[in-house]
Computed example of a mutant assay.
Amino acid sequence: MARIFITGSTEGLGKAAALDLLDDGHEVVLHARNPSRAADLGALTDRAFGVVVGDLSSTKQTRALAEQVNALGRIDTVIHNAGIYIDPERVATAEGHPRTLAVNVLAPYLLTAEIERPARLIYISSGMLDDGNASLDDLDWTSRRWSGVQAYCDSKLLVATLAYAVARRWPDVIGNIVDPGWVPTRMGGPSASDDLTLGHTTQVWLAASAEPKATVSGGYWYHRHRREPIPAASDPGFQDALLDELNRLTGVRLP
């Protein structure tokens, strides 16, 4: 039995992964953005080992969330599932990219730095990282004209780079990256072409399986098949530069 914390687990892939892991007998810590979303979990709350609450777009709440998780005792696996895509036609430019950066990159970084080090770490990226901009200039888009799609692509490249950096710096932790595909979740939309079940089974497998392939660190996975991302993500120099920039933006250094 493993104790597994999943961010963004009130719906979509996070909730699906939680249900599978609970059915397999694991202890699962669920995460909701606010008390209202936590209430939406209903009977699932009774099955969970715990429910923690915090808005990942807020640095203060994200750090408080890490404290809530640590108070529950040691976690074996963290699945950094939460992520957002913001439609620029619906959200003002001024708040759009800072939220994308905060939820998709800064939050996984802060939680990695401040949750007691687990045995396994899983980061959810996307095939759209291939279109990410491998630059650390103006990450919060204060100088550029904001693009919701480009912001999302960039964030998925950066979180994959973070995952590779952690896997390299923490050899005692099994760290992996998952591309769940374009699946018909609330974010993916009804036109998504990938299978919803296949979208979450890889992270479930990596979270707790004793199979040899699931216990090797530094993999980039799509439907349980290992792939290679664009070179920037696996470049140690780019990884170290990203960690320095995330430290500057958050005031928190990765141990």
Rank of each mutant, 00 (worst) to 15 (best):
A2F: 11
I6V: 04
G8C: 06
S9C: 01
K15V: 00
A18F: 03
L19K: 14
H26V: 10
L30I: 06
A32I: 00
N34E: 11
P35N: 11
R37P: 01
A38N: 00
D40W: 06
L41W: 02
L41M: 09
L41H: 06
T45C: 08
R47W: 04
F49I: 06
S58A: 05
T59N: 12
Q61S: 13
Q61K: 13
Q61I: 07
T62V: 09
T62Q: 08
R63V: 15
I75H: 07
I75W: 06
D76H: 08
T77Q: 03
I86R: 15
P88T: 05
R90S: 12
T93G: 14
G96V: 05
L101S: 08
V105I: 12
A107M: 10
P108E: 01
Y109R: 04
L110G: 03
I115P: 11
P118A: 12
A119N: 13
Y123A: 08
I124E: 02
M128R: 07
M128K: 05
L129D: 11
G132L: 03
L136V: 06
D137C: 03
D138L: 05
D140G: 12
W141Y: 14
T142D: 11
T142L: 12
S143T: 14
R145Y: 01
W146E: 09
S147H: 01
S147E: 04
G148L: 10
D154M: 01
S155Y: 05
V166T: 14
V166I: 13
R168C: 09
D172L: 01
V173K: 03
D179E: 11
G181D: 05
V183A: 08
T185G: 00
M187T: 02
G189Q: 09
A192Y: 00
S193F: 13
L198V: 09
G199F: 08
T201H: 12
A210E: 15
E211K: 12
G219C: 00
W221N: 03
H223F: 13
R224P: 11
R227C: 02
E228R: 13
A233S: 14
D235A: 09
P236R: 09
P236N: 10
G237K: 12
A241R: 15
A241E: 14
N247T: 15
L254E: 06
P255I: 05
